[in-house]
Structures are given as structure tokens and as C-alpha cells.
Simulated scan of single mutants.
Amino acid sequence: MAHASHTPIAAGPQDMLQPVIDWSAQCVDGFLRAQKLQLDALEVQSEIARRAQAQVTAVASELWDEWIAHWGGGAPIDA
């Protein structure tokens, strides 16, 4: 019966650097996913602010029209 040789083959530079390359790729991927989540959250927050601003503008316009109609002596101009 022949015995197989158990002599380890020397690892090349690429084999030694592969774990570092894999780790850095995973870190970069994680950072990019985190940044995308942050940008998505900022986009949602900006949309909420835009809607709130539009609502506040509409309420202010309505209150101004009511004030003009009551205290200003007539109907608002855009009525």
C-alpha cells in the first residue's frame, strides 16, 4: 500500500493576503450599506419636513384669510 505524502504546500502571497482582502471587502460593503440606510432615512425625513411645511403654509394662509375677513373689513382678495 502506498502512502500519500502529507507535506504541506507553501502558501503564496495571494493565499496569505486573501483573508485581509475578504475582510476589507466586507467592511467596505458594510459601510456602503450603512451609508445607504442613512441616505434613505434622510430622504424620508426631508419628505416629512416638506409635507409639514406645506401644511403649515396652508394653515397660515387660511388663518390670514379668516383674519382679513373678520378684522380687515371684507373678503380676502383670492376668495
Rank of each mutant, 00 (worst) to 15 (best):
P8A: 02
R50I: 07
A10V: 03
M16V: 05
D29C: 02
L63A: 05
W67Y: 14
G12A: 05
V59R: 14
A58H: 08
T57Y: 13
D78K: 14
D78V: 02
D29R: 08
A10I: 04
C27F: 12
D15Q: 13
V28Y: 11
G74D: 10
A69Y: 01
I68T: 04
P19A: 00
A25W: 11
Q53F: 10
D78T: 13
E43I: 10
W23C: 13
L63M: 01
P8C: 11
W71P: 06
S46V: 04
E43T: 09
S24Y: 11
Q18S: 03
L32P: 06
I68D: 04
P76C: 12
E66M: 12
Q45E: 15
A11M: 12
P19Q: 06
S24P: 01
H6Q: 15
Q55N: 11
L42I: 08
M16F: 02
G74I: 05
A49I: 07
L39E: 05
V59A: 11
H6K: 15
E47Q: 12
Q45V: 03
A34F: 06
G12I: 00
R51P: 02
A11E: 14
G72D: 00
A4R: 15
R50W: 06
G73N: 12
D40I: 01
L37D: 03
S61G: 15
S24C: 11
P8S: 02
L39C: 03
A10D: 14
A34T: 05
E43P: 00
Q38L: 14
Q35E: 09
Q53P: 08
Q38V: 05
R33S: 06
A54V: 03
T7V: 14
L63D: 10
E66S: 08
A75T: 11
V56Q: 14
V20W: 09
H70R: 15
I21P: 00
A54E: 00
F31Y: 03
M16Y: 13
W23I: 10
Q18G: 01
Q26K: 14
I68S: 00
S46R: 08
M1D: 04
E47S: 02
W71T: 07
R33E: 03
D29V: 01
A54T: 13
P8W: 03
A52C: 01
E43N: 09
Q53C: 02
V44H: 07
D78H: 13
G73W: 07
V56E: 08
P13H: 08
V28T: 13
H3R: 15
R33N: 05
W71L: 11
S61E: 07
V20I: 06
I21D: 04
L39G: 02
I9N: 10
C27N: 13
D22E: 15
A49C: 09
P8I: 01
Q53E: 00
C27Y: 14
H3C: 11
A34C: 08
C27M: 05
A34W: 04
L63N: 15
F31R: 12
D22P: 06
T7W: 04
H3I: 07
Q35H: 13
D65R: 15
I68A: 00
I48Q: 09
R33W: 10
V20Q: 06
A25C: 15
E43W: 08
T7P: 01
Q45C: 04
Q38R: 09
L37N: 09
L39I: 13
A52H: 15
G12C: 12
G12W: 12
E43Y: 02
A2G: 03
Q53T: 06
I48F: 08
D78A: 08
Q26M: 15
P76S: 13
V44E: 09
I21Q: 12
